[in-house]
Every structure is written in C-alpha cells, then in structure tokens.
Nucleic acid binder design. Sequence first.
DNA 1: GATGAATGAGCCTTCATTCAT
DNA 2: CATGAATGAAGGCTCATTCAT
Lengths: 196, 196, 196, 196
Amino acid sequence: MAVDKRETIVASALKLFEELGYHNTKVSHIVKDAGMAQGTFYLYFKSKEDVFRTVIEQCLEEIITALAPESWADSVMDEAQVHYQLIRKSLEIYYHHRHVLNILKRHGSASPEIEDIAATFYKNVCIVLMKLTQEHFPGYSEEKLEANAYATIGMVEMAAYQWFIQKGYGLEKLDLLTEVILEVNLDCKEIGGSSV
Amino acid sequence: MAVDKRETIVASALKLFEELGYHNTKVSHIVKDAGMAQGTFYLYFKSKEDVFRTVIEQCLEEIITALAPESWADSVMDEAQVHYQLIRKSLEIYYHHRHVLNILKRHGSASPEIEDIAATFYKNVCIVLMKLTQEHFPGYSEEKLEANAYATIGMVEMAAYQWFIQKGYGLEKLDLLTEVILEVNLDCKEIGGSSV
Amino acid sequence: MAVDKRETIVASALKLFEELGYHNTKVSHIVKDAGMAQGTFYLYFKSKEDVFRTVIEQCLEEIITALAPESWADSVMDEAQVHYQLIRKSLEIYYHHRHVLNILKRHGSASPEIEDIAATFYKNVCIVLMKLTQEHFPGYSEEKLEANAYATIGMVEMAAYQWFIQKGYGLEKLDLLTEVILEVNLDCKEIGGSSV
Amino acid sequence: MAVDKRETIVASALKLFEELGYHNTKVSHIVKDAGMAQGTFYLYFKSKEDVFRTVIEQCLEEIITALAPESWADSVMDEAQVHYQLIRKSLEIYYHHRHVLNILKRHGSASPEIEDIAATFYKNVCIVLMKLTQEHFPGYSEEKLEANAYATIGMVEMAAYQWFIQKGYGLEKLDLLTEVILEVNLDCKEIGGSSV
DNA sequence: GATGAATGAGCCTTCATTCAT
DNA sequence: CATGAATGAAGGCTCATTCAT
C-alpha cells in the first residue's frame, strides 16, 4: 500500500503541470497534493526543473520506442496499410500518454530551461517518421522527407490534442480520426505545383 | 531617430518573449533592452500581461483577416487551386508573422492567464478552414470538418515552425513546402478504413 | 472667472485628503481633479507635504482666532453663559471648518511628517480653554486645568465629528448638541472621589 | 528565550505602527526590528493589513468585553457610583491598552483600507455606553443618548491620550483624572438652553 | 529518511519629483 | 508659466531552496 514517495511526487507533479503549466505549478502545490513536507521533495528531486525533466523525458522515451515500426508494423502490410497503421498508432500513443504530451505541447517550450526536451523529442519522432517514409518515397530529398515528417507530426498532434484533450474523447473515435487525417489533402493530389 | 517609445517597448517585448518566454521575460529585461526606466513601461502598458495581450491579439486579428478567402481566393480558381493556395497563403502568413506565431506556439498556452489568447485564435482559424472545406466536402459532418481543419492547422504550423523558425529559411522554400504538405498521405488515399 | 490655480489645487487637495486620507491621496489625483498638468503642481507647492501643511495650518490658525473669547464672549455674560457659549461656539466652528477638522482628526497624526500640525493645534486650543476655565476655577492646578481643557476638546470634537461628519447633519442640531454635551456627567457631581 | 516568532512580529509591528503610523511602517522595518527575514513575516500573516487587523481587532474586542458593566459594575452601586466607576474603568482600560488605542486614535482612520476597524470599535463602545446611560436618563431620546455616549468617549479618549501617551503618566493619576473629567461642565448645569 | 520553519533574492508595480520643451 | 513624459527608488509579496531537528 505504501506507494513509493517518489512516485507520489511524480503523479502530483504531472497532474499539476498539466493543469497549471510549468511556471504556475509551485513546489508547494506539488508537496501539498502529494501529502508530504516541503523538504521531502528535495530528497527525491534536486529542483523543480528536475521533476519536470525526469517525468517528461522518461515518458518521451517510451513513446519513441512505441512509435518505432518494430513495435507495430508487420511484414505482410503493404505500404498503404503501414501508413494507415502509423497514423492510427500515433493517435493511440498520444491518447495513452495524453497527459505528458499535453504538457509537452503546451508548456514544453515555454522556457529556455526546458525547451531542449521538446526539441529533442520532436527530432527523434521525426527521425522515426523519415525512415518510414523513405521506403515509400525513395526519390525524396532529405529535406522533403523531413518536411513531410514534421507535417505529419503536427497534424497528428493537433488533431489528437483537440480530440483527446480539449474534447475529452476516448479511443472510440480512433478510426474516425485516423480516416479524416488520411483524407486531408486527398482531393488535390493531381494538381500540386502546376496550379501556381 | 525619435522612434515612438511605445513601439520600442513592443519591439523589445516581442523579441524577449520569443527568446525567453512569457514567464522568463521580466519587465526589467524589457525596459533595459528598450533603453528606458522601469517606470516608463507603465506609461504605455498597464502590466506585463497587457503588453503580451496587446501585441499578440492585434497580430492574430490581422492573421485571421488575411486568412479569410476574401483576401486571396479568386472566383476562377477551381477547388484544387483553392486548396493549394490556402496552404501556400497560410505558410506565407506564418512567415510574415513568424515571431508572434512562434510565441503563440511555444508560450501561448503556458499560463492560465494568457491561454485564452491561443485558444481563441485556433478556434477562429478553425472556423475559417471549416467553411472553406465544407464547399469541397458537402457531405462531411461538423465533426469531420473540424478534425480536418485542426489537422491542417497542425500540419502548417509545425512545418512552418521547423522551416521558418528553427531552420531560419525564408520564403524561397515556400512552394517546396506547400507541395510537400499537399503530398502528405497522398499515397494511401485508396485504402482508408478498409485496411484496419 | 479664471480662478487662481493655487486655489484650485488647494480645493482639490482638501477634498481628496478628506475623502482618501493623506497617504492615499496621490499628487496625480490632485492635479487630475484640479484639471492641470502634473508639473504645474510643483510651481505652487514644493511637495505633497507642503500642500497639506499649507492648507491645514492656515485653517487651524483661523480656528484659534475664532475660538478666542474676544471673538464671541461678552462682558455681560455670567460664567454659565460663557460656558454654554463656549461649547456652542466650538461646535459652530467645527461645523464651519468641518472638512479640515475631519482631516485633522482622521489623518492629522497618521505620520511623523505631519503629526506636529495636530499637536500644535490641540496645544493652542488647550491654552485658550485653560485661560477661560481658570477664571471659573481659580483654585485649580495647572494640571487640572489642562486635563479639563483636553476633556472638553475631546468631547466637542467627537460629538461634532459624529454629528456633522458621520451623520451629515447641519447646524439645526446645534442647540441640542450643546445641551447634551453640557449635561454629560451632570447627575454625578455630588459624588466625585468619595465613591471610590 | 525562544519567544514565539508570531509574538515577536506582533510586538515589533505594534511598536512601529505606534511610532510611525500604518503607512510609514514598512514590512521591512517590522522584520528588521523583529530580527528575521522578510519572507518569515508572510509565514505568520498574509499581508501588512493582516497584522494590523489581527492585532488591533483582537485587542479591541477585549476592550469591549472589559467595558461591559458585567465586568465591573455591582448591584450595590448607586447610579452616581456607576458613573464614576465607568469613567475610572474606561481610563484604566485605556491605560492598559494604551498602545493599541493610541494607534487607533492616531492612525485608525488614516486609510480607507482599515478605517472600518475604528468605526466598528467606536460604534460598539457607543452601544455599551448608551445602554448604561439609558438607565439614568430613561426619558432621553436615542439621539441624545448617542450624543451623550460619543461625548463621553471623546472626553475619556482625549484626556487619556494626553495623560498616558503624551505625558507618559501611569495609573497614579487615575483618580485625579477621573474627578476632573467628572467635573467638566459641572458648574453650568443650571443653565442649559435657557441662556441662548 | 522526513519535516517544515526560515531564508532572501527577485519580481511587479507605484508614485513623488524633475526637466526639456 | 505650463506641460506631461520620464525617472528610479522603494515597497509588498512570492517561492525555490536549505537546514536544524
């Protein structure tokens, strides 16, 4: 029953960071919510920034792992299926880690002290996506691959944020959301640069 | 030479908000950068939050106006062209207002005190996009239109952020970026939900 | 028509000192009420304290003069009449100068910077009263005369304050008030120290 | 030796409020006098106004209680004795609480933020006195009783202020002062309104 | 390990006063 | 004389962090 004190702090910190943001969450809030003395906090973390990093970074690593094709792709999938599954998987991951990802999106780059966290994370996700896309678009330049990857990240992130966080929906909308995202731009594929 | 003092404050504030974030930018930094006494700041703005709101909100209104189809769409354009131009125009706007949009993206929802600004902005952009999309997809539900709009916003924002802010590129990449964004997902249109 | 600017400042200052107190009245309030620029204030007064002193002290001198028996006593009055008239006159004076006396009572000793004003005033009033009482109580010690004088001052001041300021009554209550004050303690004259 | 820190703050605050007034007493003065860090102050009181209210209001309640006839009157006293004892008791109370009452008198209504304290106190004292006087003057109107009460309050307050505060006397003058106060007006009882 | 009182640097804001025009 | 923008010293209060118990 005696939950680890460190875990308690992490839980309270997460909750409050999400609710109030990094700067408006005070150490006093965290320890009050965690039901312990102010000093105890510093037995487990060396600063407020430390909890933030610890909590967020650990979660982000899990996400990167979960996003790697090894975790979900299958040799029998064709490329279209891979793409569909990628979006679906990404949304699912977002849902599962929605609290941390919400913090990351809203407060992650709010301060120079912590903005490297978000930067590193996005870069890593980008690398995963680039690798995946490269197999479909072998002729693409690095630059195009990267742009493509970031566009996908932005799309998934924003859609998931609005659905899972703002509207509070659960996974029951997962397929709907996946399809809508996949349909974005579909109707204009034939034109592209020619219309300028 | 005698630049308007208010302008000076705005310039310094913008620069510092972008660099340090809302919370880490102190009024003392702003006035130091602007080369004036601390008290002078309060002749032009009634608080730190006031500069932030004033500067950001005004810019966001301009953006909403610029984004409205009246400002750029043309009756002779077909739907594909409209879509292409929308993305292109959005990226262009992002570029022109990149400093404010960067602040919005990174620090806009970092505090309860100011998060309404970003929320309102995204909602307004969403409304513009939904109207536009509705003409192409008359059968779409409100929900799908909304999801589609947010996905587009996320895509444009993230791509523009990486290109114009992180990489520091200028408009020379505008067409490239537009095309890449339009091609996202293109290769999978034929599958959709059937592949689950 | 062009009222003297100095007078305008004095009028505004008086009004605001009474309403807000010395510390809560800002120079900016005064000039705004007086309809002039901030700098103009310093052409007529050298500081905020200076207006306060000027306004109050001048009025207090008038009061001392008005209170002197020469202004109201009459050789045909007997001692009882003198006493009655003294109270009545004091109340009347309080009424006429109620704004300044209100300021004096409420804010006059609120700061070391200005507390000498009130102290001097009360001392002067005390001297007037002591002289007057001495003729009735030739056997009284200095000490008793002084105590008596201060008791009278306190009585008149508090009663007048409650009536003219707090309740906002005018001179129609003058006689009633005078009588009540004179009756205070009346019923116990026969006992005094014997009852201890 | 380890005096309660809260007590220390109260002591310093009282001393400084009395000496410098509410506005001129800075929190930095208080903590310096109390020998602690600035932040410590806020562990015990939530603002400067809070110390003021806490300290003053508590004391004033004690005074109201001590002033109630139950605390000092006796069934065997005749009315004259009651009156004598009332004055005597009031002076005694003033002496015991002279620091707080001095603050109240001098600074109590110096600011809109705190003036309700003094107003409430005087009203309560007035009520106590009115009840007491009503038994002696059953025919008096409310208005007369009130005027009488306030006159008494003013008399006692001013006399006590001059004796115990300004002159720094102690209780050795208590009876003298009581008698002088009781004799005020004595010589004119026979005239009243008839002399106008 | 746990506590929580104590610290003190630092922030936002106010405002009396000055001075160039 | 008049102006009002500019100044900058302070003040109230917060909060991350420390440390004696």
